[in-house]
Every structure is written in structure tokens, then in C-alpha cells.
Simulated scan of single mutants.
Amino acid sequence: MEWTIQQVARKAGVSSRTLRHYDDLGLLRPSSVGANGYRYYDPTAVARLQRILLLRDLGLSLDDIAEVLDRSGDEEAALREHVTLLEAERDRLDRRIDAVRRAVEARRTGVDPSLDALLEGFNDPYRDEVVARWGERAYQEAHDWWHGKSLREQVDWKRDTDELIAAWQDAWRAGGSPGADRAQEIAARHVRWLGQVPATPLADGDRERSAEMVRCLAEMYAQDPDFADTYGAPEVAAFVRDALLEHVRRWG
């Protein structure tokens, strides 16, 4: 079974000139050429055209598309790659739609939507680490929980977070020890704050894994430069770590 260049162009929504251009580039050869010079395309050629158009819609250049197709000898593997690319594109569009919706809501409510946390999601930057430590469910449910919040609810969460950070900074400046009552009260508050995030060990009530989670985060606070910036200074982040580790130790 073969179709003429005009039939394929019409069904694919492209021009015959485009298909001839793809032929000139070696990107899409017709399956046969008639004595009259007409190009014909069989199902294999049409499937390749479909892949070309999908990759083009994803923004790849023709040179990049050629490279992808040349690397894809296995048709099933190539189709799986297409699915992956389309899912990534869907996620990108979902994020853009979400950003526009939040901009609309910000105009309506008068809330400043410029905070990074409102734009990139709750735990998106740490996806790989969250999945590795606590599983895909922990990441996805936390992600959905965050994106399910209204802009006002996200701002309120950010405000509570800022207040918690300020409490840690005040406790450190006061010169108390990580094991002192004030620091341990903030540590308990910090753990309750973490427990609001669904599908985490704290939210699930898994005591052993909760202790592991808090210890892991405590060490991250002191080791990751981003968290040192969050708490204002490496010394404060280390204070938070020591207080949280002591808090978990007292769980027994």
C-alpha cells in the first residue's frame, strides 16, 4: 500500500513542498518514485513522517530530528521515546498553564506571585532525591498537594515557613544550645510543619522512617549551600541540624 505525495501531505497537514524538502535533506525518503517522477510513501515512510512531525512540534531542529531518527533503529523503542518526549511537553505546558492561572489569580486577589516557590512547585527541585529516599508516591502526592493549593494558601504556607526560619535565627542569636528548651520547642514545631506534607513518613505516622527523614533533612540543611542561604548563615543551618538531631534522639 502506498500513497501519493499529495495524499500524504493533505493527511499530515503539511505541503508537498515540505515533503520534497525532507527528501532533499535525506530526512524522509519516499518508498518509491514512479516513472513520472511522482513520490509515493508506504506505511513505514508515513510512520517516519509522524515521528518527524512530533519531534518538530517539540521544537527540535531538522538536524536534531535527523540525529534522533538515526539513533532509533528499534521502532518500539523509538515510539517509547516519543511518549517520553510528549509527556515532557505536556508537563511543560501544564506548568505554563498553571503559571498563567496564578497570574490571573494574583491580579484578582492583589497577591504578589513572584516568589520562586509559587512558580516552580513545592519539591520539584528535589524530585530525584525525594523519589530515591521515600518513593515516587511521596514526591507525587506532595507535588499534587502543593499545586492543589490556591495562590493565597501557598502564600500562607510561605509565610509560616518564613516565621519558622525567623524563630530558628532568633534562637541562634540568643546563644542557647541546640538542646535547650527553646530550640527543642522550635524543633518540635519544625517536625509538625514537615508533617503537613502528605505521603511523607511523618504524615503516614511511620516513626522509624520519620526519624530517618528528619535526620536526613537536618544534615541537608547544614550541607547544602542553598539551605545555608535560606537560614541566613551556615552557623544557623548547623544549629538547626543539631537541634533536630537532638529532638529525634529524644524520641527514644
Results as ranks from 00 to 15, higher is better:
6 Q>W: 02
8 V>A: 12
9 A>S: 13
11 K>E: 06
14 V>K: 08
19 L>M: 14
22 Y>Q: 06
22 Y>A: 03
23 D>R: 06
25 L>H: 10
28 L>T: 05
33 V>G: 05
34 G>K: 11
36 N>I: 03
38 Y>C: 09
40 Y>T: 02
44 T>G: 11
45 A>V: 04
47 A>Y: 04
48 R>L: 12
49 L>T: 11
51 R>C: 02
57 D>N: 14
59 G>N: 07
67 E>Y: 01
69 L>C: 05
70 D>P: 00
70 D>N: 07
72 S>R: 04
76 E>V: 07
79 L>A: 10
80 R>C: 03
81 E>N: 12
84 T>N: 12
89 E>R: 15
99 A>C: 01
100 V>I: 13
100 V>A: 14
102 R>Y: 02
110 G>S: 05
111 V>N: 03
116 D>Q: 10
118 L>D: 04
118 L>G: 13
121 G>N: 06
122 F>V: 02
123 N>L: 09
128 D>C: 01
129 E>S: 15
130 V>L: 08
132 A>F: 03
135 G>E: 03
138 A>M: 11
139 Y>E: 04
143 H>T: 05
145 W>M: 00
147 H>R: 14
149 K>N: 08
152 R>T: 14
156 D>Y: 02
160 D>H: 15
161 T>I: 00
165 I>Y: 07
166 A>S: 13
168 W>Q: 03
168 W>C: 06
170 D>Q: 12
170 D>T: 10
172 W>I: 00
174 A>K: 09
179 G>P: 11
179 G>F: 07
184 Q>D: 08
190 H>M: 06
190 H>K: 02
196 Q>M: 10
202 L>K: 06
202 L>C: 15
204 D>G: 08
215 R>C: 12
217 L>P: 08
221 Y>V: 00
221 Y>H: 12
222 A>H: 01
226 D>T: 09
228 A>Y: 00
228 A>K: 07
230 T>C: 11
230 T>K: 07
233 A>D: 15
236 V>S: 13
237 A>Q: 10
239 F>C: 07
240 V>L: 06
244 L>A: 08
247 H>A: 12
248 V>S: 09
252 G>V: 09
